[in-house]
Design a protein around this nucleic acid. Structure first.
Lengths: 335, 335
DNA sequence: ATTAGCAATCAGAAAAAGAGAGTGCTATTT
DNA sequence: AAATAGCACTCTCTTTTTCTGATTGCTAAT
């Protein structure tokens, strides 16, 4: 258990280090605390023994350890509100109802990345609860057509289809059948419904049924794949932090930011809270921190995350994420 | 004018340097040429005076100058055919007719990037010759709907629309009017046609005409913006070349690869040939070379480019680009 | 015209030297 | 008992020096 003064010193050290990116000497703290540097040094030894501080070499100032950051985030961090200026900048995005939700989210995180110099990730999953609302086919020329698919949640997919020697009537009939029979079916059940309900019927009414069945089967097979969108914004901000001044490290992080699985792992344990993953917990790099949260609306749910150095402005980022999460959820659910 | 032997030596030096990334000593060349290193050195002096070679310091081996690369590309480079192995890998992509053209191109350049360790850029412009083929609206709930727009070339756009207090009938009528009156209009002329031809009519037949007109006007305004798609593939390959072992340089290049204007400038002077921009000509970095070409099909045209170090495998890349260009054009036009 | 031979040059690695920041410890004060 | 002043000690970071090896340019010989 830390004394009150130790808490104070630890907080000051973490905050100084976040700001100055340089091991914090006792002299810096004693100015703040009105006591001598020797006193601070004694406390520093205690904090180091407790595992919250580290030295870079025998006679260096102190740097927060991973546990130090953890303790700071869990116990010491000011949970102030979002900065008014930042709120204002984000407000203008959320006020704009013209844009689609995913664009709003991307834009807001773009702004966050620009302001903070950190990197943002947006993961949004195609919901499995989407049901087919309407399918239509627009012929382009003799062999090509565009298939348009809309779900009840307003999700749109389109696919080009090339079919030689199929009559327009056949196509129209097939589309009509699909619209009549499987509208309302959840997208991941369409393939099987197509096989068992539609196939027998179109084989009666449609001449080129074999080819058409196959084509539409493929289209739906494709769409129903449970894909996630991964959007990484402000990647180049990685270069802006002195802990990433090593080209091999930067390369490694860039490769992870491009790696689907690594990015998807961020969204695991979909929690309503804001989660902070410090250093090795981030799964990216020991010098990286990931702060994330999830959102849920009527139509959509997803995860947003900010990636930066372990020496990150924790409270600022937490506030920003919290604000955005609330805006998204208010915007869409509360209307 | 260079002698035959000077040509030979220059070619060997460029090729060695591309392969070994190390200033080429005379000893390396004389093995190849069956003459003494002193002889080669004399020729090197001549080539240096002609501006084709440089030294990194007084007693270093020679490195090709920008002019040296230029001379090599224009006069000395073997214009062999594409490597069979590489052709095979690309073939499988182009054989797959399921994919849309833009996906085929992206995939093939992804493969090129993986094979060569260079970076690829695909620039494809939305053609202005697209004409409206069909518009449809799918209502999602009371206030939201999806507008689907298809052009005669199979280009699809969709926009979410929020409209409070508009009746379904009004919407249907408006869509019908648009379909009746402006299908076939080039997309960049739709806005004005909407204003002068449609507005007067819907104001008669549609109750909430003001709001609907405005909404559709915005939708078309949005789509007709002459946007270009910019797709950069294999960015992380930048890290793989020793000339980019400097973090500031890498940062600078990454920022340029993300910069719309810089990337768009690649497609200028839309030429049918394959163009090579060496060093400062690349507009990216003095150590960078850009090799590009353009393609043109019935539906689409665009530019593809490979970005790598100046010390690039010129002939290999030229062959790859040439092959891909031909495949694209054959694939789409020929058939 | 070509080549052998050799001193001269310079990058890059390794070693040495110097300066400065900050600590830990001890003795002293409060 | 807690806080502080004082000082030797440690270690990084920077600069300087030394050393080695690769490669050249030049001169004289073939």
């Amino acid at each position: 258990m830390l004394t009150k003064r130790q808490n104070e010193i630890l907080k000051l050290i973490v905050m100084s280090y976040i700001k100055l990116a340089h091991p914090v000497p006792s002299s810096l703290i004693c100015e703040e605390l009105n006591c001598s540097s020797a006193t601070v040094r004694n406390e520093m030894v205690a904090l180091e023994e407790a595992g919250y501080l580290e030295k870079t070499h025998t006679s260096s100032g102190r740097v927060p350890s991973e546990a130090g950051y953890r303790y700071y985030v869990d116990n010491l961090m000011d949970k102030a509100n979002i900065n008014k200026d930042e709120e204002y900048k984000l407000q203008t995005i959320f006020a704009n109802r013209q844009l689609e939700l995913s664009d709003v989210i991307t834009k807001s995180l773009q702004i966050v990345s620009d302001m903070t110099l950190y990197t943002s990730v947006i993961l949004d999953e195609k919901s499995h609860e989407n049901k087919l609302k309407e399918i239509s086919v627009v012929p382009i020329n003799n062999t090509e057509m565009v298939v348009l698919i809309v779900t009840d949640k307003g999700y749109v997919e389109h696919k080009d289809l090339r079919l030689d020697d199929v009559s327009l009537d056949d196509i129209k009939n097939t589309v009509k059948l699909i619209n009549d029979l499987i509208v309302g079916t959840p997208i991941d059940e369409i393939s099987s419904k197509l096989e068992f309900d539609i196939k027998p019927i179109i084989s009666k009414y449609v001449k080129q049924h074999e080819m058409l069945y196959k084509a539409f089967y493929n289209v739906f097979e494709d769409i129903s794949k449970p894909g996630s969108n991964i959007n990484v914004v402000g990647k180049n901000n990685i270069f802006k932090h002195k802990e990433f001044n090593d080209i091999d490290k930067v390369q490694d992080i860039f490769e992870k930011l491009d790696d689907k699985d690594t990015m998807l792992s961020i969204k695991e344990e979909n929690d309503n809270d804001i989660k902070v993953y410090i250093g090795h917990e981030s799964n990216l790099d020991d010098d990286v921190t990931v702060i994330k949260t999830s959102y849920k609306t009527d139509k959509d749910n997803g995860t947003i995350a900010i990636i930066g150095p372990k020496r990150m402005e924790y409270s600022r980022v937490v506030n920003l994420l919290d604000y955005i999460k609330k805006q998204i959820e208010r915007d869409e659910n509360g209307k």
